[in-house]
Every structure is written in C-alpha cells, then in structure tokens.
Computed example of a mutant assay.
Amino acid sequence: MPLGLDADLLEILACPAPDHGALRPGTPEDADAAALTCTVCGRRYPVTDGIPVLLLSEATGGPEQSAQG
C-alpha cells in the first residue's frame, strides 16, 4: 500500500472539508507523493511519518487556491 497506510484505514478516511469526499493516495501530478488527495474538492493533505495530517490549515490545492490563481 502506498505511503504505508493500512488499506482499511484508507477506506474510512475522508476529507474534513464541508464538501468532503474519499481520499486517495498521492496527487494528480505524482501518484507516489506523500499525500492524500480528496476525490471531490481536490485538497491535498500531507502524510508525515506515515500519519495523515487531515487539517484544513495544512491542506494545499482545492477550491480556494483555484479561485486565487
């Protein structure tokens, strides 16, 4: 399993944003990146030392950054 995350854990993790969705390993640019990407909003959450950091303040990408760019 990518990132060393348990498959059962990955199945129950979800994006903490109000428009939440399932998370998938990696990013659209790099499937092996140490991150989880929301399948709905596109936010990317880092995985540090095998621990997903599911804080909106730590997320990159998503609707806010698309609106700024």
Results as ranks from 00 to 15, higher is better:
Cys41Ser: 15
Thr37Ile: 05
Gly26Arg: 02
Cys15Leu: 01
Glu11Leu: 09
Asp49Ala: 15
Gly21His: 09
Asp8Trp: 06
Thr37Gly: 04
Gly42Lys: 04
Ala59Leu: 05
Pro16Asp: 02
Val40Ile: 14
Ala17Asn: 14
Gln68Ser: 09
Glu11Val: 10
Leu10Ala: 03
Pro28His: 00
Pro16Cys: 04
Ile51Cys: 06
Ser57Gly: 15
Leu54Met: 03
Val53Met: 06
Asp6Cys: 03
Cys38Pro: 10
Leu56Phe: 08
Gly21Ile: 09
Thr27Ile: 10
Pro16Phe: 02
Met1His: 09
Gly50Asp: 12
Thr60His: 13
Gly42Arg: 05
Val40Leu: 12
Ala67Leu: 14
Ala7Ser: 15
Asp19Cys: 01
Gly42Phe: 07
Ala14Val: 06
Ala14Asp: 02
Gly4Thr: 04
Glu58Ala: 15
Ser66Asp: 14
Ala22Trp: 02
Glu58Phe: 14
Arg24Asp: 13
Arg24Val: 15
Pro46Glu: 08
Pro28Thr: 00
Asp19Gly: 04
Val40Ala: 14
Thr48Ser: 10
Leu36Cys: 09
Gly69Gln: 09
Glu29His: 08
Leu56Met: 14
Gly69Cys: 02
Gly61Val: 09
Ser57Glu: 13
Leu55Gln: 08
Leu5Tyr: 12
Arg43Pro: 15
Thr48Gly: 05
Thr39Ile: 03
Gln68Phe: 00
Cys15Lys: 00
Gly69Met: 05
Asp19Ala: 03
Pro18Phe: 05
Ala17Arg: 03
Gln65Phe: 02
Met1Ser: 11
His20Pro: 05
Asp49Phe: 11
Gly26Ser: 10
His20Gly: 15
Ala59Glu: 05
Thr37Met: 06
Pro16Ile: 01
Ala7Asp: 15
Ser57Val: 10
Ala31Trp: 03
Ala34Val: 01
Thr48Trp: 07
Ala35Ile: 07
Ala33Met: 07
Val40Glu: 13
Asp30Trp: 01
Pro2Lys: 14
Gly21Lys: 06
Met1Arg: 04
Asp30Ile: 05
Ala14Gly: 06
Ala34Arg: 03
Glu58Lys: 14
Leu5Thr: 13
Leu13Trp: 08
Ala7Thr: 15
Asp30Gly: 07
Pro25Met: 00
Thr48Pro: 03
Asp6Lys: 01
Ser66Trp: 08
Pro28Leu: 00
Leu3Ser: 13
Thr27Arg: 12
Ala35Thr: 07
His20Val: 00
Pro52Lys: 09
Leu55Ala: 10
Asp8Asn: 13
Ser57Cys: 03
Leu5His: 13
Glu64Thr: 14
Pro2Asp: 08
Gly4Gln: 09
Thr48Arg: 15
Pro18Gly: 11
Gly21Tyr: 03
Leu23Gln: 04
Pro2Gln: 12
Ser57Pro: 05
Glu58Met: 11
Val53Thr: 10
Pro16Val: 01
Gly4Asp: 06
Asp6Trp: 00
Ala35His: 11
Gly50Ala: 10
Pro52Val: 12
Ala34Lys: 01
Asp8Ala: 15
Pro18Asp: 11
Cys38Asp: 13
Pro16Gly: 04
Pro25Thr: 12
Gly62Met: 07
Gln68Arg: 12
Pro52His: 10
Ala35Tyr: 04
Leu5Ser: 10
Asp32Ala: 14
Ala33Ile: 11
Ile51Gln: 04
Gly21Asp: 07
Pro25Leu: 01
Gly61Met: 09
Pro16Thr: 00
Thr39His: 00
Thr39Asp: 04
Ile51Leu: 11
Pro18Ser: 12
Pro52Tyr: 07
Asp6Val: 00
Asp19Glu: 11
Leu10Val: 06
Pro63Thr: 12
Leu10Gln: 04
